[in-house]
Simulated scan of single mutants.
Amino acid sequence: MSVRQLAGPGTALLRRLREPAPPQPERCEFCDVQLPREHRHLADRDERALVCVCPACALLFQQSGAAGGRYRGLSGRYLADPGHQLDEAAWQALRIPVSTAFLFRDTALERLVTLYPSPAGAAEAELDEAAWQTVLDGSRLATELEPDTEALLLRRTAGRIDCYLVPIDVCYELVGRLRLCWHGFDGGAEARAELDGFFGRLAERAKAPRVEVRP
């Protein structure tokens, strides 16, 4: 058999099989309609997961008690509380092993969960809930935090600790962004630049919580 014969259609097929498949468009988990890159999510409390949905299906699950309360829509709130700043002593009390982490209240586990970005994805840190309660006591963000759907996203830099209340899918977006550019032990310069840009956009978007006057 000649070299020319080896380079026939079969070889081309093997070459295509070795090449990575193009990414498939995401689809709504309920109606299977194709979704744009930017789309909405629901929190699946039973599976402890996020579900991609189209606007119509997201609207259905905004009704109280829909699907027995299993799915909850994300609020879309971005909040900051300049009046409650965390200091270095507070960060040490929290015992977070890295510079960036997020926490949320998981109703399935009935406790707070702390996760942080890593080259393998979101990793869970050991949590002293009593320490969290002490550090966050008096914070309007902790009072506002909705279970399963919102998280407190924190980042420690030189002389500064930022804390934002965000939809929980924003935290997983950050984890995915860092995973794509992670190099070395601590992520490297590219990951730090991604963090700078991400938190810069949060600072521009976040607002102070509204003060509600109740009778």
Rank of each mutant, 00 (worst) to 15 (best):
C54T: 00
R16G: 02
Q34I: 13
V175K: 10
S99H: 14
G138D: 03
P82M: 09
R140N: 05
R160E: 15
S75V: 04
Q63C: 08
E29M: 11
R140F: 01
C28P: 00
V170Y: 13
L109A: 14
A120N: 10
G187T: 01
E47G: 01
L86H: 06
E126P: 03
V213G: 03
E173W: 08
E173L: 13
L178Y: 08
C52N: 14
V166N: 06
G138R: 10
R72G: 05
Q24P: 00
R18K: 15
Q24M: 14
L86D: 03
L35N: 05
F61H: 13
F102K: 08
R18M: 12
P209L: 03
T107R: 09
T100W: 03
M1I: 07
F61K: 06
D196H: 09
R27Y: 11
A189L: 14
G197N: 11
A66D: 06
L94F: 03
H39K: 11
L59Y: 07
S99M: 09
L86W: 01
S99W: 10
D137I: 01
G197A: 14
F102S: 05
E173P: 01
L59H: 10
S139F: 03
S99I: 03
R27Q: 12
I161E: 03
E173M: 04
W182V: 00
T114W: 10
A208H: 04
A7T: 07
L141K: 02
A130H: 07
A49V: 03
A120Q: 15
R70G: 01
L74N: 07
A123G: 01
F185I: 14
D137C: 09
P36V: 04
L103D: 03
F104Q: 01
L165N: 04
L13G: 00
F104C: 04
L153G: 01
D87S: 10
A90Y: 01
R16Q: 14
V175M: 10
L174H: 10
G69C: 06
D106V: 04
D169K: 07
E194H: 06
A101C: 13
A58W: 12
A189F: 07
R140E: 03
C181M: 06
R214H: 09
A206T: 02
C52R: 15
Q62S: 14
R210W: 02
Q63W: 08
G10Y: 15
Q133E: 15
A58G: 07
E212F: 01
R40W: 11
P215G: 13
L79K: 02
D148P: 02
E124K: 10
C28T: 04
G65C: 12
V33M: 13
P55T: 02
A49P: 02
F198P: 00
R177T: 09
A122T: 00
Q5D: 08
G8M: 09
A66T: 09
L127Q: 06
T157H: 04
F30P: 00
Q24W: 13
R210F: 02
L50D: 02
P55A: 11
